[in-house]
Design a protein around this nucleic acid. Structure first.
Lengths: 186, 186
DNA sequence: CTAGTTCCGGACCGCTCGTTCCATAACAAG
DNA sequence: CTTGTTATGGAACGAGCGGTCCGGAACTAG
């Protein structure tokens, strides 16, 4: 739901949703129950799509760390495509937690899934010698996950894609341990 | 303003503020204009306090990287003291950007100030040999700033202080380049 | 004490919110 | 075509919103 994404839960009125969905009020209530349930459904859809992206992108073999970087780029690009609204998940967590138990549950599941996917991918990277020895895959995953959430906030203040890319570059350079492995200079 | 902090802008009603401030409606409007101006004033106060904390904490001499870590710990602890409401600044950015120009201006200023303070501190750390050679102070500052914003989101989902501390530990280990420098093992 | 001034806060206003309801459109079965 | 059923969406509702207003308390000066 683009409206909830862009404006947040409280700032989106039922009348906005009626206009945005092209449905009558009665139909919306018949289909979703109430405003909050509609929001939760929309968020669940969004998170599911995100997690599917992660799961499928990591199925292949190949250079694990470069794959990870690529997925993060695509993920950030997808969120950026929706007019600097940031990330629906991050926005919802910031606005509704810790008060909303449904959103909290969804967020816990989604972040745990992402963290696990990152961990598996970083474990592969470690096998390939692309992970800094000072970092366990678990620690690296948590670090990366946290950084991505932070990027979603920082991007709302400074939307320059180059800055986002530069931050990711720095992070992956550190993760790799040896700078040359990701960007083989000549 | 604790109420705006905890519940966000839209979810906080004037009647909440009347009760919370112990003032009558009329007095509030006479003093602040309207709800939005009151919010902006509250946010500005919060940001000012945060930036003051940074500025004063970095005035001293001493081990720059350890100082930085200490400041971040204190900053996160201060936000945690207010019942897992997260960080007022991060919450506001997520809820109101990109629609609210006043909040956008405040956020830009505050983040820029923090980034600059981090940069100066990391430059000092570099002089002391405590910064990874694969990182400029500017890149490290942006990385750290982004990570802290991310921590404020992740903490709302997983409030365990140990996890927050562990994430910071990993980050500083990577920033330092050589793991032994921060935690001199025997 | 009185008169003048300031400031507070509860009653009140118009409006919009989320939600419900129902006349009617649309369609399937006989 | 008629009838029974479902689904639609606009009108209407009570509640609660942000914002205004004014009677009176509190304080100062003479």
């Amino acid at each position: 739901m683009l409206l909830f994404w862009r404006k947040g839960y409280e700032a989106t009125a039922m009348s906005d949703l009626v206009e945005g969905l092209g449905l009558g009020r009665g139909s919306i209530y018949a289909a979703f129950g109430d405003k909050h349930q509609l929001f939760v459904r929309a968020l669940a859809r969004y998170l599911d799509r995100q997690n599917t992206l992660l799961r499928t992108a990591f199925a292949d073999e190949g250079p694990a760390l470069a794959q990870l970087r690529d997925v993060l780029d695509r993920l950030l690009a997808a969120d950026a495509a929706c007019g600097n609204a940031g990330c629906f998940s991050v926005n919802s967590i910031a606005e509704l937690l810790p008060h909303d138990e449904d959103v909290a549950r969804l967020a816990r599941q989604s972040l745990a899934a992402a963290e696990e996917a990152f961990t598996r991918q970083l474990a592969r990277a470690a096998d390939e010698g692309d992970l800094s020895p000072s970092l366990t895959p678990e620690a690296g995953a948590r670090l990366l996950l946290t950084l991505v959430q932070g990027l979603q906030i920082v991007r709302k203040v400074d939307p320059d894609p180059a800055h986002t890319a530069a931050t990711l570059d720095s992070a992956f350079t550190l993760l790799a341990g040896q700078p040359a492995s990701l960007t083989p200079t000549a």
